[in-house]
Amino acid sequence: MQIFVKTLTGKTITLEVEPSDTIENVKAKIQDKEGIPPDQQRLIFAGKQLEDGRTLSDYNIQKESTLHLVLR
């Protein structure tokens, strides 16, 4: 499924993921596309910060959901 990741600069990254993918996994995909190390990434969905060990389905993230990427 496709999800979108919006950065603070207003750029939107499109990722191909599975509901069973972990947040860690998603961060690795963002690193592949954008070169941002996962340890600098914070992903936010519905106002919650997403934890590395959880999966997209844990957070009920469905196709075409938009996550927000904050760098630390």
Rank of each mutant, 00 (worst) to 15 (best):
Asp32Val: 12
Val70Leu: 10
Ile13Ser: 08
Ala28Ser: 08
Ala46Met: 13
Phe45Ile: 12
Ile23Cys: 02
Thr12Leu: 07
Glu24Ile: 05
Leu50Tyr: 01
Phe4Cys: 02
Val17Phe: 03
Gly10His: 12
Phe4Ile: 07
Leu56Glu: 00
Ile3Phe: 01
Arg72Cys: 03
Lys27Val: 15
Lys33Asn: 11
Thr9Ala: 11
Thr55Cys: 02
Leu43Pro: 01
Gln31Thr: 15
Lys27Asn: 04
Asp52His: 14
Lys48Cys: 02
Leu15Arg: 00
Lys27Tyr: 14
Ser57Asp: 07
Arg42Lys: 14
Asp21Gln: 07
Thr55Phe: 04
Ile30Cys: 01
Leu67Ile: 03
Gln2Ser: 10
Glu51Pro: 03
Gln31Leu: 05
Gln49Met: 04
Arg54Gln: 10
Lys11Gln: 13
Thr66Leu: 12
Thr66Gly: 06
Gln40Trp: 07
Thr66Ile: 09
Pro19Asp: 08
Glu18Lys: 10
Ile44Thr: 12
Ile30Trp: 01
Gly35Gln: 15
Arg54Leu: 07
Thr22His: 07
Ala46Asn: 07
Ala46Asp: 15
Gly10Lys: 03
Ser65Glu: 15
Lys27Cys: 02
Gln40His: 07
Ser57Gln: 13
Asn25Pro: 01
Gly10Pro: 15
Gly47Phe: 04
Lys48Leu: 13
Val26Trp: 01
Thr14His: 07
Gln31Arg: 15
Gly47Met: 08
Thr12Asp: 15
Leu56Thr: 04
Lys11Phe: 14
Leu15Asn: 00
Ser57Val: 05
Ala28Gly: 09
Gln41Asn: 03
Ile61Lys: 00
Arg72His: 14
Gly47Tyr: 04
Gln62Ile: 15
Leu67Ser: 01
Glu34His: 03
Gly35Ile: 07
Gln40Leu: 07
Leu8Val: 13
Ile36Glu: 03
Ile23Trp: 01
Lys48Thr: 11
Ala46Ile: 11
Lys11Glu: 13
Thr9Ser: 14
Pro19Lys: 15
Glu51Ser: 03
Ser20Cys: 02
Leu71Pro: 14
Ile30Ser: 01
Pro38Cys: 02
Thr12Ala: 14
Gly10Asp: 12
Ile44Lys: 03
Lys33Arg: 06
Asp21Ser: 10
Ile23Tyr: 04
Pro37Gly: 09
Ser20Val: 09
Glu64His: 05
Glu16Ser: 05
Asn25Lys: 04
Gln31Lys: 09
Ala28Cys: 02
Pro37Cys: 03
Glu51Leu: 03
Leu50Met: 14
Ser20His: 08
Val26His: 00
Gln31Cys: 02
Glu34Pro: 02
Asp21Thr: 09
Ile61Arg: 00
Asp21Val: 15
Lys48Trp: 14
Thr66Cys: 02
Leu69Gly: 01
Lys11Gly: 11
Thr12Ser: 10
Leu71Gly: 15
Lys48Arg: 06
Glu51Cys: 02
Glu64Ile: 05
Gln41Ser: 09
Lys29Leu: 06
Pro37Arg: 14
Glu18Leu: 04
Lys63Phe: 10
Gly35Asp: 04
Lys63Gln: 14
Ile61Gln: 01
Ile30Phe: 08
Leu56Gln: 00
Leu67Arg: 01
Asp58Gly: 04
Ile61Tyr: 01
Arg72Val: 15
Thr66Ala: 13
Glu51Ala: 05
Asp32Met: 07
Leu71Ser: 14
Pro38Arg: 13
Leu56Cys: 02
Gly10Trp: 07
Asp52Tyr: 05
Gln41Gly: 10
Lys6Pro: 01
Glu16Asn: 09
Ser65Pro: 06
Thr14Tyr: 14
Leu71Ala: 11
Ile13Phe: 15
Gly47Gln: 14
Ile3Lys: 00
Gln49His: 03
Leu43Glu: 00
Lys6His: 07
Phe45Met: 12
Thr9Trp: 04
Leu67Thr: 05
Ile61Asp: 00
Gly47Pro: 01
Arg42Ser: 15
Ala46Phe: 10
Leu15His: 00
Lys29Tyr: 05
Pro38Lys: 10
Asp39Glu: 08
Lys33Ile: 13
Thr9Val: 06
Leu50Gly: 01
Ile23Ala: 10
Ile36Asn: 07
Val5Ile: 11
Asp32Leu: 08
Gln41Val: 11
Asp39Gln: 07
Gln49Arg: 04
Glu18Pro: 04
Val70His: 15
Gln2Leu: 06
Gln40Phe: 11
Phe45Cys: 02
Gln31Ile: 07
Ile61Pro: 01
Pro37Phe: 10
Asp58Leu: 08
Pro38Gly: 06
Lys63Pro: 13
Asp58Ser: 04
Thr12Lys: 03
